[in-house]
Design a protein around this nucleic acid. Sequence first.
DNA 1: TACGTCGGTGTTTACGTAAACATCGCGCAC
DNA 2: GTGCGCGATGTTTACGTAAACACCGACGTA
Lengths: 360, 360
Amino acid sequence: MDVDAIRPAAGVQRGGSDVPGGRRKQRVSMADVAALAGVSSQTVSRVSNGHPGVIEATREQVLAAMRELGYRPNSAARSLRYGQFNTIGVILFGLSSTGNSRTVEAIATHAAAEGYAITLIPVDMPTQDNVLGAFTRMGELAVDGVIVILEIHLLDASTVALPPGVHVVVVDSDAGDRYPVVDTDQADGARQAVRHLLDLGHRTVWHVAGPAESFASDRRAKAWRAELEAAGRPVPPVERGDWSAESGYRAGLRLAAHPDCTAVFAANDQMALGVLRALHERGRPVPGHVSVVGFDDIADASSYLPPLTTVHQDFAEVGRRCVQALLRQLRNEPADPGTDLVPTRLIPRASTAPPPDAGR
Amino acid sequence: MDVDAIRPAAGVQRGGSDVPGGRRKQRVSMADVAALAGVSSQTVSRVSNGHPGVIEATREQVLAAMRELGYRPNSAARSLRYGQFNTIGVILFGLSSTGNSRTVEAIATHAAAEGYAITLIPVDMPTQDNVLGAFTRMGELAVDGVIVILEIHLLDASTVALPPGVHVVVVDSDAGDRYPVVDTDQADGARQAVRHLLDLGHRTVWHVAGPAESFASDRRAKAWRAELEAAGRPVPPVERGDWSAESGYRAGLRLAAHPDCTAVFAANDQMALGVLRALHERGRPVPGHVSVVGFDDIADASSYLPPLTTVHQDFAEVGRRCVQALLRQLRNEPADPGTDLVPTRLIPRASTAPPPDAGR
DNA sequence: TACGTCGGTGTTTACGTAAACATCGCGCAC
DNA sequence: GTGCGCGATGTTTACGTAAACACCGACGTA
């Protein structure tokens, strides 16, 4: 009794769900605003969307009513009406890699600038099944398009039945000609790394590659090999890691066992960090005896011991171009089906130098 | 003419927008499925949602029709009907910090497991205006609740008018009693770090703090000071960085100038990395002359030179609890208004040792 | 003065879904 | 045999928004 008596006075227009059992009118709708302002809901709509043809007095009245009621447009209704969600889905396998999170960040920023929200669709493990599941889930998700950040060759076999009407842009993969692809110019970056070391006078360059399943790792390794072969140098056996510093450390220990190894190109900075540690522990000074080059140019790389020479990747630019490419599709503008390569550049720091026998 | 004649034969039910001008019926609706299956749309709805009371034969028929047409439920319509979006918004300032991306990853994973999608709402710079903008934008966003990962004291002044009906969980901040808070037990972590160094025999511990605006940095610094004072040790002046390895390096150079500095507690691992580099360059061996402890236990820390003793933060657990807490709110279960602290633990590695004068 | 035009506003309708209610036919109990 | 109940399915309606169309006065022109 008392409570009931108090309630009407307490909350002007609660909005919250008063009724214990089920959900009550959660939010203020146009009709509510219209009623308060003494106009039709269509006029409220016009004001809400900034359409012309509303006289200033009316407009003010509606805005006042909106403020009073705390009106917020219902995006579900909007989406239903317009047939689109203004949302971009991002399918990825983990944010833990620096590259991924930087790319996603850039995607989110640029998408926001274009009025799109971004929805994350994480894939536990990049297995065929899981990726498929993600696509299926996404089919039911409120997204207009999708940016896929993973090794798409996981999908090749199954010719995934992508829901029609959902547009796709792929990052860091070989989507072939099926989707537009945005990617860092991995090959050129690897080439620059190898060239840098050869130019310093090293006879050849050893390579610590990423995991075999990784397409990015693949391309870096291929370019490394190609550059060595083009220069007529011997191609040492590949050491392989899993992108982690730990795995780089183990690879580094193996490399340290080769006395003729004077130059190492690691497929990413973190493995390079592990290599630095291994070489240090084995008494092989860097860059005195061995030179090391990484890939990515993560923020920490300049603080390694010694500061790491590495290949800079512009993740932000990759994210930017993804959004652009996807928006082009969404707007039905002519899509460029090919691969859009973001250039890389070598950042020379203190981990590279001429080989110890340079003067001989 | 020819084209028109061909079309019906060519595409079974294109779905794509044929009409050049505007958007045509983009997707297959329940009505389409119902028509093909020869049932009412309500029956399609029942099948779609796995409701009981549909005879097996009918059910099969509907499923077949769904498959044939490639039916996917329209989540906008669903959301409109149900009054909720099954989506959680995450407001954050950048994914670049390891902690943030790991937390977001965990949030995304657990949210997905509960049938929620997550929408990212990036804030360019954590200024009052931007954060407010994010909240406003979010008000119009299709989210049922929000997880805020930033220094909420940026918001304090303005008593942000959070849209009613939107639930909030805050990470890594002092939201006071306004919202449930999930956080790492920063204070205890810092205490452990200091204690570890004192136990090794160091007379006192120097501190490289994070930026002044950071609440996390604040708490670590406060706990560091408190622990020193409790032990009756002198409290050296605080050096301050911005979380980056570069800033840690500069702070490290300043510390290296103090000959009596034998123990350093850095507020995160990356600044610790910079400190390691500075000490190395200044000929102060770690841990021979100086011991260093970090905070976070990022993956790379075990590969630093030397491998870093640090305080482990369980970001994944933080993410998990955030989702749990938010879901509890969404389900109108009794919310625990207090702060939920995730414990930390010290990981001893090779960067700490007794001070050089230990035997004296 | 009468008629067309146009600016400002209201009314109708559709978007896709699912709860609530209505219907229909069949088997079983009295 | 009649009526009741129940299982399977159809019909109506509402969710909130905005395009399309309808309307109604005031003004300008013939």
